[in-house]
């Protein structure tokens, strides 16, 4: 499959070269839902500005949706939608007017802009409120309006900068559900966030950056492959299980704080042997699961294995 975005050797410095916002970043992503993870100041916003053709890199090249951003920095914006992190909406106009105006600015003919603005506002759940001035909107409604304006011109890729910032847990859940829906419609999304949970629950690809450098990239599933650690819950009798396993199978297991037991497994035959050992010892098998790596773990430098 043709990559959605190809970033090669991207370097951007500020303040006369003393601040390196991006440092030889090379990464390629495919269409889909992509999480761009990094702490504040990791270079996410700089990368967005370069993708939008609003900032010129010191070195390297970027191709998005088939366009070399260096060659056509204005044209690339026709194919991208952008949702900034901060408040950015004109407050004294209605959501319908704002979104349709921004649709026209993206190049839609006026009639299509009005029609699509109304459709998209409906899609993000603002069907009733769209004729009210944005002044009276809650944070959640503003975030939805911001998302709607990014989608109105049917972009090839939508850039979302911290879309869940400032939302309460319910609002955050709804926003992520909306992003997942976009994925089902076949819209590609690049979502910058510092919340790994959001990416883990929403995105099928991950790009992790820190200090302007690539930390890791790939499909979320691949990165979160089984860590080779089995977790067994025998209802508070973990110590007994450790004894049994050490005695019969020669496996070095450990009891966790919650009373469950963790042990390394090589393959499925070990799994069967463990289940058999639990049954022989007359222990109740409450739960048996393989511990998965978390993005947090990956980000902090613990490998999947």
């Amino acid at each position: 499959m043709a990559p959605l975005a190809e970033i090669v050797g991207l370097t951007k410095t500020y303040a006369g070269g003393s601040v390196r916002a991006l440092d030889s970043l090379t990464v390629s992503v495919e269409p889909g839902l992509i999480g761009l993870v990094g702490a504040n100041g990791a270079g996410k916003s700089t990368l967005f500005r370069i993708l939008l053709g609003l900032s010129q890199p010191d070195a390297g090249s970027v191709r998005v949706a088939g366009i070399d951003v260096g060659d056509d920095p204005i044209g690339v914006r026709s194919r991208l939608g952008f949702m900034p992190e901060h408040d950015c909406l004109p407050t004294d106009q209605s959501a319908a007017d704002v979104v349709s105006m921004l649709g026209e600015l993206a190049g839609l003919p006026p009639h299509d802009a009005r029609q699509r603005a109304s459709d998209i506002l409906d899609l993000v759940g603002l069907d009733e409120a769209r004729f009210r001035p944005i002044e009276g909107f809650s944070t959640g409604m503003r975030q939805r309006t911001k998302l709607a304006q990014a989608l109105v011109a049917d972009p090839h890729l939508v850039l979302l900068d911290e879309p869940t910032a400032g939302l309460d847990p319910a609002g955050r859940h709804e926003m992520l559900e909306l992003v997942r829906r976009l994925g089902r419609f076949g819209i590609s999304v690049l979502m910058a966030t510092h919340l790994l949970d959001d990416v883990q629950s929403t995105c099928d690809q991950v790009v992790m950056i820190d200090g302007g450098r690539l930390v890791g990239a790939g499909r979320t599933d691949d990165l979160l492959e089984s860590s080779g650690v089995l977790r067994v819950d025998v209802g508070g009798r973990g110590r007994r299980l450790v004894e049994v396993l050490g005695h019969t199978l020669g496996i070095d297991a450990a009891v966790l704080a919650d009373g469950s037991v963790e042990l390394p497994v090589a393959d499925d035959s070990t799994l069967d042997a463990v289940v058999a050992a639990v049954a022989d010892a007359g222990l109740p098998l409450h739960a048996l699961s393989s511990r998965r790596a978390t993005l947090d773990g990956l980000f902090l430098g613990e490998g999947p294995r």
Binding site: L52, P84, P90, A106
Partner: peptide
């Protein structure tokens, strides 16, 4: 209202 970044993300 910081609308400028929104406008300049257009062509």
């Amino acid at each position: 209202n910081r609308t400028l970044p929104l406008l300049f993300s257009r062509p």
